[in-house]
Design a protein around this nucleic acid. Structure first.
Lengths: 145, 145
DNA sequence: CAGATACCCAAGTATTTTAGTCGGAATTGA
DNA sequence: TCAATTCCGACTAAAATACTTGGGTATCTG
């Protein structure tokens, strides 16, 4: 039931962009700060770009930035772009993944799980995460690396 | 984010035992009804036995049965036994999986997800699933295979 | 315009996890 | 005794995950 590194790295990258603010941020610096393999992160940012979550600026002084304000990007947007569905079972999505999905009580359980996950990740924006982070940093300040 | 076949097969097996009721039910018949590879299911039932969810009766006319009434076995019990934790990220469990887990806002999100999943799977018992199944079967009766 | 800085992209590989198999031992009811 | 059945550990196959590589293309700066 884990979220794969794709999803988690992606969330960290978008969070990083939200935290850095404005100017295009080069991939290399995101990778360094978030401790994620650069070449791998590049793939993920491409995917996020195609999903309209980030914009890229090519050339010197280029980099990535959020395509929308943090308020308008949810954790779910990122997870959906990188992981596809977060449903706990195939049968939640397509009725034909299992012969009896139509009349299957287990499916109801899976649907409830899916619904509540979607609920949380859909309603948590990166502004929320940013705010939480600010509160955490106040309590126990982190040294900047 | 999928539940692996271990978890899903396990749920089906326990559901099957709940549905069949009483007598020890041989592995082979569970596997046949639930369309799960027999040798693989055997492993899972061993695990469920060690977790105190099912009892086994050896020898001829033997088989498996629930160790407790369906009301007292939750979907979460089975998932925990077979999959370990259902947490979306390692950091939800151990503080030392990530240097800054203590002051990480992402972790709060993962914890919320975990909590809501635990909430659902912990409160859904096999009696509930059985009841749901009965209701579904009334609406659209299934032929017995 | 040269050169450096970045993104772009597809294909390949390594690692890990999942899913399933096999063979034989031990137990028990008939 | 024998057939049915669980017990158990080790093995293998397949799939998914987590990267790496290598070359291309745009753009800024001097």
């Amino acid at each position: 039931m884990k979220i794969s590194t794709k999803g988690r790295y992606g969330i960290r990258a978008v969070f990083d962009l939200a935290q850095q603010g404005e100017g295009p941020i080069p991939l290399s610096s995101i990778a360094r700060r978030q401790r994620v393999p650069e070449a791998y992160l590049e793939q993920l940012l491409q995917t996020l770009k195609r999903a309209g979550i980030v914009d890229a600026v090519r050339g010197a002084q280029g980099g990535y930035r959020l395509a929308k304000p943090p308020r308008d990007v949810s954790v779910g947007d990122v997870l959906h772009a990188l992981e596809g569905s977060v449903a706990p079972s195939e049968c939640v999505l397509s009725t034909d993944s299992c012969e009896r999905s139509g009349g299957c009580a287990m499916r109801l359980v899976y649907r409830k799980i899916n619904e509540s996950i979607e609920n949380i990740i859909g309603s948590t924006t990166f502004q929320d995460v940013l705010d939480d982070q600010r509160r955490l940093d106040e309590r126990a300040p982190q040294e900047v690396i």
